[in-house]
Design a protein around this nucleic acid. Structure first.
Length: 507
RNA sequence: GCCGCCAUCGUCUAGGGGCCUAGGACAUCGCCCUUUCAAGGCGGAAACACGGGUUCGAAUCCCGUUGGCGGUACCA
């Protein structure tokens, strides 16, 4: 069913509209096209569909480049690097479209339409009111030469130009073997003659894509299922031009948790949102690849190279899928844990700086210490952004107490343990302030007291961090340093530990 | 309304007529490990939307229903 492409023949493309931030759905289909191209040694083309002049802006083109690079989706031809089939921006290809429009006009497969948008809207509404399916009447197709000339003159006088419509042949079946869904058929009768070139001379999407795909020699198209209903119209253009259509496949959409289109309300929709939240590009890449596709071995965690190696059209799934943030977080955690400490620290740095915890250019010794701090939290965070909350008590002078932890852990009976711990720790000189030393000291104390570890360690933990959960206590104390540890113990002792029999201990 | 696409645990999915008492992963629950939190290990709960066919046999094939989504533009 699916033709296995020969080497180096595959040409696929990503054709976004530069009208806003890059949507996760767009990058998802780009990713499959990219995997397909890389798998078969093909060419991955980037082109901008900017025929919507109202909404297209150059700055969004830069965002597209940026997000693609971030995810590691490199392109072989594109607006910025050129290529043999350029230009790669639709507004720069107007003369090309015009040539094909002229050809269709000359062949009689397209015709000028002089109807105004207002007239058309009225017709449509009338049909709707009558409960009928609206399709363009074909009025301008049946014009006599005289009528045509009159209308053309009238339009010109009004400073308008006619649109061009494709004449849709009646009673034919438009069908294709969808790369992911199998055969899909539609009757041409359900499609009215549609505009291929607007009155302003700019072609409409369904026409421009076809011309671009033909002239750029695109062999395979993988796109979102939203395009299924466009395909018959595009097939009509291929047909009128006498050019065979590329192989086309439609991927399931990515939906939010409410089964609606992904948006701010139901989970972030833009690639940039995920980057800002501290997701790793390799994790997002891996995650997206698993939405709508599964490798034969069902392995979840996979490198870019493995994904390329395993990718196949046959294992693409049809149903739409929901973007499960929780699973992305898990996967991100997996990738974070795989990073070297240096790499992890390097990637965390911007987040810490943005939060004001770390200066712009930390000294070498400071950087070494920062890396150690980050290292003990590395196995515990799900995103890079989490590192800020996780480590801030190492960086700040004043700690914030988690009141729940204080209430639960700092009891009147903790006072003795904290006082003793303080005394013991005060005797440790700076040069001996190491995790192992501190651990030996306090374990010995616990044993002498004949109490449980938790009765002593937990109050210390809360006293120095303000929290009930931190990395292993002695690593934490060691990194915190002698001065901060002692100061926090003293402060907590005087301010936060209820005295025996006092009212404070009751709530 | 009309046209089209889709339908397996909460989620991503495996499955292509007997291998299915439906497998895996995330999440969830329990236990273990443990100074707390993670991570890890072990175990549990959890699905073939519904109704008809076809067949010796259906999650798998066909029809219908329901539901979701998309299109029905001089948007892409």
């Amino acid at each position: 069913m699916v033709d296995t492409p020969g080497p180096s023949k595959v040409r696929v493309r990503m054709a976004p509209s530069p009208t806003g931030p890059v949507h996760v759905g767009n990058i998802h289909t780009a990713l499959f096209n990219w995997l397909f191209a890389r798998k078969f040694g093909g060419t991955f083309v980037l082109r901008f569909e900017d025929t919507d002049r109202e909404r297209s802006e150059r700055k969004w083109e830069d965002v597209i480049y940026e997000e693609m690079r971030w995810l590691g989706l490199d392109w072989d031809e594109g607006p910025d690097i050129g290529g043999p089939y350029g230009p790669y921006r639709q507004t720069e290809r107007l003369d090309i479209y015009q040539r094909y429009v002229d050809q269709l006009l000359a062949q009689g497969d397209a015709y000028y339409c002089y109807c105004s948008p207002e007239e058309l809207a009225a017709e449509r509404q009338a049909a709707e009111r009558a409960g009928q399916t609206y399709r363009y009447s074909g009025r301008c197709l049946h014009l006599s030469e005289a009528e045509r000339a009159a209308l053309a003159a009238q339009l010109e006088a009004e400073g308008r130009s006619p649109a061009v419509r494709l004449h849709v042949p009646a009673g034919i079946t438009l069908a294709w073997d969808d790369l992911v869904r199998g055969r899909i058929e539609t009757e041409s009768n359900t499609i009215g003659d549609f505009v291929i070139r607007r009155g302003n001379g700019i072609p409409v999407y369904n026409f421009a894509v076809v011309i671009d795909d033909i002239t750029m020699k695109i062999t395979h198209i993988l796109r979102g299922e939203g395009h299924i209903s466009n395909t018959p119209m595009q097939l009509l253009v291929y047909r009128a031009l006498g050019v065979p259509a590329p192989q086309i496949g439609h991927l399931g959409h990515i939906l939010g948790t409410d089964r609606q289109k992904l948006s701010k309300r139901n989970g972030d929709a833009y690639v940039g949102d995920y980057r800002a939240k501290g997701f790793l590009p390799e994790a997002l890449f891996n995650f997206l690849a698993l939405l709508g596709w599964t490798p034969e071995d069902e392995q979840e965690v996979q490198s870019r190279e493995q994904l390329i190696e395993k990718f196949s059209l046959e294992r693409l799934t049809r149903a739409p899928s929901i973007f499960d943030l929780t699973k992305l977080e898990w996967l991100n955690g997996v990738y974070i844990r795989e990073l070297s400490v240096e790499e992890f620290a390097r990637r965390c740095l911007p987040f810490l700086q943005k939060a004001g915890l770390v200066e712009d250019h930390p000294s070498a010794s400071r950087w070494t210490w920062i890396q150690q701090v980050l290292a003990i939290e590395q196995p515990r965070v799900k995103t890079l952004a989490d590192i800020v909350q996780a480590t801030e008590y190492f960086f700040k002078d004043e700690i914030e107490y988690d009141e729940k932890a204080v209430r639960k852990v700092l009891k009147p009976e903790s006072r003795l343990f904290l006082q003793d711990a303080l005394q013991l720790l005060e005797k440790v000189p700076s040069e001996k302030w190491q995790s192992g030393v501190l651990e030996g000291l306090l374990h010995e104390y616990v044993e002498r007291q004949g109490v449980k570890n938790i009765q002593v360690f937990q109050p210390i933990r809360v006293a120095v961090s303000g929290r009930a959960a931190t990395p292993p206590l002695f690593d934490t104390l060691a990194l915190l340093g002698r001065e901060k540890t002692l100061a926090r113990l003293r402060h907590t002792l005087s301010e936060r530990v209820p005295k025996e029999n006092s009212e404070e201990g009751l709530d």
